[in-house]
Amino acid sequence: MSHAPGESPVNPIPPLILALFVLILGVELTFQLGARGLAGGPQAIGWRQSALTDFGFQGQYPTFMVETGQIRAEYLLRFVSYPFVHGSFTQAIFAGIMLLALGKFVGEIMAPVAVFVLFVVSTIGGAMAMWALGGAQDWMFGAFPPVYGLIGAFTYLLYVRLGQVGGPQIQAFRLIAVLAAIQFVFGILFGFAPDWPGDLGGFLTGIAFAPVLVPGGFSALVDRLRQR
């Protein structure tokens, strides 16, 4: 494959995805400095727990709005704020690395804004699934649901690509199958995480929205609907 002079043979990470990564790591760094007494004084030790309580997601919040008819901005914010607070440094690092990797893969096909939109809708989709399938008191936080949304988009793109070259399209689901198997083994050994609906919702949202976010995807979808 040849490249134009001055053109990088490696596609860069979409800038909005890079900005999300910096934000996630910046929040985590703040928690780490506070826990070690390097910022914020004695009260900084509780910054993480306070942030999880203030910005994490629980199904009871949307349920309250539906049952009372009261729309509260602070409750709506939780649908998109939970990916930026993590329960531990390890969770934040793993989620951040996967965000960069999947963001780059998907960004090789989709426009940077489309990748960002995918992140947002997968975040909301994860919250909706958690509301529908999780316990009302179960907390969800961390960037894994939108990361699974990127995995869903990657799965769709690989599925289409394999179809174009005549390859076995079932292989497109290998990554999500491996991740699901790993989660199942850890669940058997250490107990299943209560926020698993968020990951499922993120993945399904990503694979559902990918066809309309690829270049020309929406027009192609409209054409297929017209033909029917």
Rank of each mutant, 00 (worst) to 15 (best):
I109H: 12
P145H: 10
K104R: 15
L118V: 05
A92G: 05
Y82W: 10
V115M: 06
V106R: 02
V117Q: 02
T90Y: 02
M128H: 03
G163V: 01
A172N: 12
Q164H: 13
I151V: 14
T123S: 06
Y156N: 11
G107N: 12
L150V: 09
M128S: 07
F94N: 10
F94R: 14
A129L: 13
F84A: 03
I97W: 08
L133T: 03
A129G: 10
Q137R: 09
F116T: 08
T90L: 11
L150K: 04
I109L: 13
F94V: 15
L118H: 05
F119V: 11
M98L: 10
A114M: 03
M140C: 13
M110L: 14
L133V: 06
L99E: 01
Y148Q: 01
T123G: 13
M128N: 05
A132H: 00
V113S: 11
G152M: 04
P168L: 13
F84Y: 09
I170R: 08
Y159V: 03
I170D: 08
A127V: 13
F154A: 03
G134Y: 00
A95C: 07
Q164E: 03
F154V: 00
L102W: 12
V80E: 12
G152H: 00
G96N: 05
L133K: 04
I97Y: 04
A172Y: 14
G142D: 00
A114S: 14
G134Q: 07
V147I: 14
S88T: 14
Y159T: 01
L118C: 06
G166E: 01
V106S: 08
M140L: 15
A111E: 10
G96M: 01
A132Y: 00
D138A: 10
T90E: 02
F116L: 15
F84L: 10
G87H: 08
M98T: 11
L157R: 02
V115N: 04
W139V: 09
G134D: 10
V117M: 08
V80Y: 13
V106Q: 12
A143K: 10
A101S: 04
A143D: 05
P145W: 09
E108L: 09
S88W: 05
A101Y: 11
L99H: 09
V113L: 15
A132M: 04
V115K: 05
Q169T: 12
F144V: 05
G152L: 08
Y82G: 02
P146Y: 14
A95Y: 13
D138F: 12
A101H: 09
L133W: 09
S88F: 06
L99D: 08
Q169S: 11
Y159P: 09
A101P: 07
G167S: 14
G103K: 08
T155C: 04
T90N: 03
A129S: 05
L150P: 06
A101E: 02
G96R: 06
A172W: 15
L99N: 01
G142A: 00
F94H: 10
M110T: 11
F89R: 12
S122L: 07
A153M: 03
I151K: 00
V165A: 15
E108W: 06
A95P: 07
R174N: 05
T123V: 12
L158V: 10
A111S: 14
P145I: 06
K104L: 15
Q91K: 09
S81F: 00
G167V: 10
A92Q: 03
